[in-house]
Write a protein that binds this DNA or RNA. Structure first.
Length: 266
DNA sequence: CTAGATGTTAAGGT
DNA sequence: CACCTTAACATCTA
């Protein structure tokens, strides 16, 4: 479920495992997972250098590959890292790129559906600019958030998921944030008064911080969280109403009709 | 067998 | 031009 909290956990995982390990050999098992770089070039840029430091912006993870620039990881819907020693584990079916390190261990970029990718950039700032990524959702203060709200229009859920507006929030956490803020996913930005705007910001931070602290594990989230049981028909942990499913901008959206009401008609 | 699943983005429409 | 929606991507599971 790679949204901001998941990617932050992947970042921390890499920092506590493969960080500073020199890459001995890069094994690209499926070249289609590479974006805008050839196998040959990736190897030339990465082999012989240590991994890290790391940097994250929204759902994008950047890992310094030494003097040549930065590895870029995007996890799509099913990506994650595995770090293993040849003894306790081995290569699995969906491992797409393997970073064999000098210490004998391997960092695998695993991605079942191949919607994620591995890329490379000489300049992180430039990469972010090209993608037009908005500020990281955990790197924005209330003032900055309100300034961006001033420029925004339309429904809240698609706005939260718009990576150019704010980076890191996806389908699951946008539902959770709106659930916690008691705002309807289709409520418009213009329907928010000052109090609701502030509440949305606070809940956004709280949800993302909590998710990171719980290692992005849905089962470990507080009982009051929608994400623990994100499906239609279950009882809302806040008000007891039945959780409902609807489609919002092409994605399935779960919400509680009991405490997330849309007062502004559209 | 079919529908749907956490993300991004190209393409088409308003 | 800006914004919104849909389809496509690849693969697995309910």
């Amino acid at each position: 479920m790679p949204e901001l909290p998941d990617v932050e956990v992947f970042r921390q995982y890499l920092e506590s495992t493969a960080r500073n390990q020199k890459v001995r050999k890069v094994d690209v098992r499926d070249a289609k997972i590479l974006k805008k770089i050839s196998v040959r070039n990736l190897r030339a840029k990465t082999e012989g250098s240590p991994l890290g430091p790391t940097q994250r912006r929204g759902k994008y993870l950047f890992v310094s590959g030494g003097r040549g620039g930065w590895l870029v990881f995007h996890f799509g819907m099913t990506g994650y890292f595995r770090y293993f020693g040849s003894e306790d584990s081995s290569v699995e079916k969906h491992d797409r790129v393997l970073f064999h390190c000098a210490n004998g261990k391997t960092l695998a970029f695993t991605c079942r559906r191949k919607l994620g990718f591995v890329s490379f950039t000489p300049d992180v700032g430039q990469y972010i600019e090209n993608k037009e990524l908005g500020p990281d959702a955990l790197d924005l203060d209330l003032k900055g958030f309100e300034e961006r709200l001033d420029k925004a229009r339309g429904a809240l859920k698609p706005l939260l998921m718009n990576q150019k507006w704010i980076a890191g929030i996806g389908n699951v956490y946008s539902d959770e944030i709106l659930f916690q803020a008691s705002l309807h996913p289709k409520a418009s930005v213009s329907s928010l008064d000052g109090k609701k705007r502030k509440s949305l910001f606070r809940r956004m931070r709280k949800v993302l911080e909590t998710a990171v602290a719980k290692k992005a594990d849905a089962a470990k989230l507080p009982r009051s969280y929608l994400t623990r049981q994100r499906k239609a028909g279950v009882k809302c942990p806040k008000c007891g109403e039945k959780i409902r499913r609807m489609t919002v901008s092409g994605r399935s959206c779960y919400y509680c009709p009991g405490h997330q009401k849309n007062h502004a008609l559209t």
